[in-house]
Design a protein around this nucleic acid. Sequence first.
DNA 1: CAATAAGCTGAACACGTGTTCATTTGATGA
DNA 2: TCATCAAATGAACACGTGTTCAGCTTATTG
Lengths: 342, 342
Amino acid sequence: MGSRSHRSVTAQDVAKLAGVSRASVSRVFGNQGNVARETHEKIVKAANELGYQVNFLAQGLNRKRSQLIGVVVARLSDPFRSSLLEGLLNEIQHKGYQALVTEVRGAEELETTMRRFTQFRVSGVIVTSGQPPAELVKECVQHGIPVVGINRHMDIPDVDFVCSDNKMAALLVAEQLMRCGCHSIGWLNYQQSTWSGINRGDMFRQAMTEKGLLGDCDFQHIIAEADGYEGGRQAAHRFCAEGKKLDGIFCANAQLACGFLDGMRENGLDAPTDFHIIGFDNTPQTAQYSYRLTTIHQDVTETAKRVLSCLEARSHDPRIVQRMEKIPVKLVLRNTSPGQNE
Amino acid sequence: MGSRSHRSVTAQDVAKLAGVSRASVSRVFGNQGNVARETHEKIVKAANELGYQVNFLAQGLNRKRSQLIGVVVARLSDPFRSSLLEGLLNEIQHKGYQALVTEVRGAEELETTMRRFTQFRVSGVIVTSGQPPAELVKECVQHGIPVVGINRHMDIPDVDFVCSDNKMAALLVAEQLMRCGCHSIGWLNYQQSTWSGINRGDMFRQAMTEKGLLGDCDFQHIIAEADGYEGGRQAAHRFCAEGKKLDGIFCANAQLACGFLDGMRENGLDAPTDFHIIGFDNTPQTAQYSYRLTTIHQDVTETAKRVLSCLEARSHDPRIVQRMEKIPVKLVLRNTSPGQNE
DNA sequence: CAATAAGCTGAACACGTGTTCATTTGATGA
DNA sequence: TCATCAAATGAACACGTGTTCAGCTTATTG
């Protein structure tokens, strides 16, 4: 009990106990180079006996690359974003990496964040929010660090993107509303929306046009002044106060949809009797009894898999052609725009 | 454009450009040791010119400690847990650390996770879920790594705990239900609950006794067979099917509370007309129009601050006496058990 | 002016691992 | 038996930083 600061056990100690050189120990735990079966066993045994563990800092320093992956998140209070993070964490660990998670608000914070990532020699960076400034990305690329963005398609060279298929979502929603006989259609979105919000609106309008619906139908753009549940609720109140009417509404995300629905209820209107409403994200809340909201489901697991696939591909060869992957979505039919799920 | 692999700029390069020794550069960026004002400026200028950044892996290797903090999370789909993580991330970054986040399911996963933390020489470990096995903690302590648990008080030597004040919560709820004239009181919890769930129940019963309520009142323990919203909802259905009645219900968390409320509504009963119901966690959802749930509010920000304070204290001196901090809670009065918020 | 102290600086070692390169070992074929 | 070759091994260098210690310069005090 006298030994105050326990010097941590190193590969050298293992080598001495096993009666081999430190290089062989390194070969065993680095999973490369040839080691005789017998030597291998001696080393593993000695390592277990001493409780040896590789020092990742030293390993990363030497390899010029740590097995860390930087993840930029924002607004975790949004249930969809937290479930997305959950999916990413799973896949990251499954592939043998560790997640370096940073929450970010402004653009300047993102800058210092990205720098820290490079200082830790991360194997890759995943941006789930905000657009990565082109210069910072260039800095990463120079260091040989791959960057992937989620749910936004921007044209930054050498950066891959993975995005839910908003066009497919728009078509599914347009077909559903048509099938239900809706004639006056609305699109609800936050005023200062994200890229994905805007893109979903564009795709929806485009889908309506392709289906030849814009002729017979009203198409209104409802603008929420705030984001999230309260934004949707207030939008509904103003909507009613202005005496407007719609029978089919598509919302940029689940929070807005729930808020709008509740706002309408406060005004004595409800779905599906008075109107149909369809959300985006399929968060747990939308399935609950008080909402039973029909929504577009994003496949978080598949998204996470594709993201890591992009990272590994570009890590292997930094100059491959830019990828822009679209993840198929599903329409989950519930009470606010009913029908038969297949 | 010919230089293929850009060798990263090192402290040596900065030293050469500034015309000083590498040691001085290290002193400037390590924030210790004395450096003349003039030399300092020369070094900073040279560093900016070259775009120098400290290599955290090398720094950590030398200091035997990285500026990483390991965070163990579980079930991020629970809104409270994600908001807790959000609070922790903020405080961690604010203090100049970086978060190494791991999601964990079984106990064996937690073991490999903790090992990885030590392999990265983290400055501390925060466990938000499950109880850290004593042996693993001992391993951390041997390496000089402080461990803090959130919302559970176990008696593991050298591990600090930060927990919302469940006794205070119980008293606030008991007083509120008493004030509203409730006579038959219920406590709803998940069958295989966490430590905090069980403790909240114990404290509630104790508070009821202290207030002298257990004599006049019924006190029932309602057991949910599943966790989360669906668990609460099913519990309500069974509760009604068995013909039971209660006029005041306290729930172990917000998800259970929302589920139970919706389940009662499906049976034609609603709060506050037919019964009062109070939840725990004050998640965003509980504030929404469809619920307006009276709940106990946990101060996530304060919790995060105390956690990091514990880490830094024990990091400074590993053998200080074990801390068990209780964070005050608030009762947020809403529709399901109305009253006046002060 | 001499003696002392205080503040800066640079050389050198340590941190723990990956990887190259030369050397040794053992096996195979003629 | 000897020549050839592949596999296995160990010595040495590299990765980029923190920190000690001795030497240097400059200011302070008697």
